[in-house]
Design a protein around this nucleic acid. Structure first.
Lengths: 108, 108
DNA sequence: ACATCGCGTAAGTAGTGACTTACGGTAAGT
DNA sequence: ACTTACCGTAAGTCACTACTTACGCGATGT
């Protein structure tokens, strides 16, 4: 069920942008918010959601808080997706073959 | 950018439940809605969103519409996640080592 | 001690979206 | 032709959520 909160967390575009900014490495809140179209408190709230989803963690560094990506939430998402991948791919190919057979039937 | 719509599509719990019902194979709308806590039109709207996200496709079968998982959206999501995975894992392990070193410094 | 920096939280607001009921339209069955 | 089954869409409502400004707290510097 952990993938549920991760999905809802990554659904919001600006929150996803916050998350993607951490891909290049750990960053403080101010550094993340710099150049963003939203205010710094908004970024803080987004980071709170991402943290609760297990997607990021933080480290105290003096007066500033450094956030970085936590593989835990990412791993839960990957595991969930892999449940579908093989099965969906096989079912899709079977569907394509079924489609090809139907086209033959519909010839004049 | 295709992963964005896929993420917002899978964020909603009931829509995710609709999607998960298709894992066992192609199903008609009525079959999907059967036993769900929401109405059939709601399921139709969810399927519309999933289709626009490239997560499902449909096939006409007489008077009923059969939906099945489309690997396209799933693949876009996997590709996006894999961009983070290796990088995030390495950064996280480096962070753990940094943490271990700090604990040594904090000894009395 | 005081000022400043960096951040989280509270409260309030506007906008989005998930749901309902009602309706229309197509395909099959009698 | 008439009914029935199956589905998509329209319109309207309610809850949630992403954002803002205002505030408070801890850490650093002078």
């Amino acid at each position: 069920m952990a993938y549920g909160t991760a999905l809802t967390a990554l659904a919001d575009p600006t929150r996803r942008r916050v998350f993607e900014r951490l891909r290049s490495g750990p960053k403080a809140v101010g550094a993340i918010a710099r150049g963003m179209p939203v205010s710094r408190p908004a970024v803080s709230q987004h980071l709170k959601v991402l943290k609760k989803a297990g997607l990021v963690t933080d480290r105290q560094e003096g007066t500033r808080r450094v956030y970085y990506i936590d593989p835990q939430g990412l791993g839960a998402l990957r595991a969930w997706l892999d449940q579908f991948w093989d099965q969906a791919l096989a079912a899709f190919q079977a569907e394509m073959e079924r489609r090809a057979n139907n086209e033959k039937d519909e010839e004049i």
